[in-house]
Design a protein around this nucleic acid. Structure first.
Length: 223
DNA sequence: AAAGTAAGCAACCGCCTGTTA
DNA sequence: TTAACAGGCGGTTGCTTACTT
């Protein structure tokens, strides 16, 4: 029924990396006309790319508010927490990280966080222990991250997966825990009928929405 | 120094959803 | 109600770079 994005212009896809000239054309065009109408943008901007490719390039790399560079520990914490709640909803997760894109978050998860979690015996898909973790200890409990205390949406508790000696009591994670630097307090609100809907039913997370209220994002779970 | 391998990440693909006529 | 379309999303690919042998 629907034609593929670039079917009308064979040879416009699989163009590889964007050149400086292409970037400039795209940026100049969007500055002048604004974003949108991606289907017609390539022709209007004299770009031999498909609209999707232009959109992706703009959203992921050319937008002025994109934050590049390494992820901060706070950001990593937040990604893990949100992933535990939302799963692979990268755009939702990225939406809580100012300046980060879904593609960047997804890549970071797949290349960094996933490996770290697996190394600690945590299944990165469900955030549950799947084997005996390789425990390591340090003397700085304040440095505990979500990598070491992963909120488990199934039982509503924090799974202590490593650094057991230093991280057990302080800073215990919960759905209402706080991220000071990013001002991102996560509150889980159950719309109906009761909070017990979460227990053992991760698929309930299928229909979720993060609402902004008084600058505190709230995760609402719909039944 | 060269070849082989692994890791990181930009880019593409195909499907889904919302909107409009 | 349905078809067509645009935009958006997650999964995957493949190129580039770094590292190892």
């Amino acid at each position: 029924m629907r034609k593929p994005c670039c079917s009308e212009k064979q040879g416009t896809n699989k163009q590889g990396a964007w050149s400086r000239q292409e970037d400039k054309k795209l940026v100049d065009y969007i500055r002048l006309h604004g974003q949108g109408s991606w289907r017609f943008l390539p022709k209007a901007a004299d770009l031999h790319r498909c609209g999707k490719s232009c959109r992706l390039r703009w959203i992921n790399y050319l937008k002025p508010d994109i934050k590049r560079g390494n992820f901060m520990p706070d950001e990593e914490d937040l990604i893990i927490k949100l992933h535990a709640l939302l799963g692979n909803r990268w755009s939702l997760i990225a939406g809580r990280l100012p300046g980060r894109t879904d593609n960047e978050v997804k890549n970071y998860w797949n290349t960094q966080i996933r490996k770290k979690l697996m190394k600690m015996g945590i299944d990165p898909d469900n955030h549950k222990m799947n084997q005996i973790p390789q425990l390591h200890f340090h003397n700085q409990p304040q440095q505990c991250t979500s990598m070491e205390k992963v909120f488990n949406p199934i039982n509503g508790d924090a799974d202590m997966v490593s650094d057991a000696g230093s991280c057990l009591e302080d800073d215990r994670m919960s759905a209402g825990s706080s991220h000071h630097d990013l001002n991102l307090d996560l509150n889980v609100v159950f719309s109906s009928p009761s909070p017990t809907v979460v227990a053992g039913e991760q698929k309930k997370l299928e229909n979720t929405e993060i609402l902004e209220s008084d600058e505190i994002p709230t995760l609402v779970l719909f039944n």
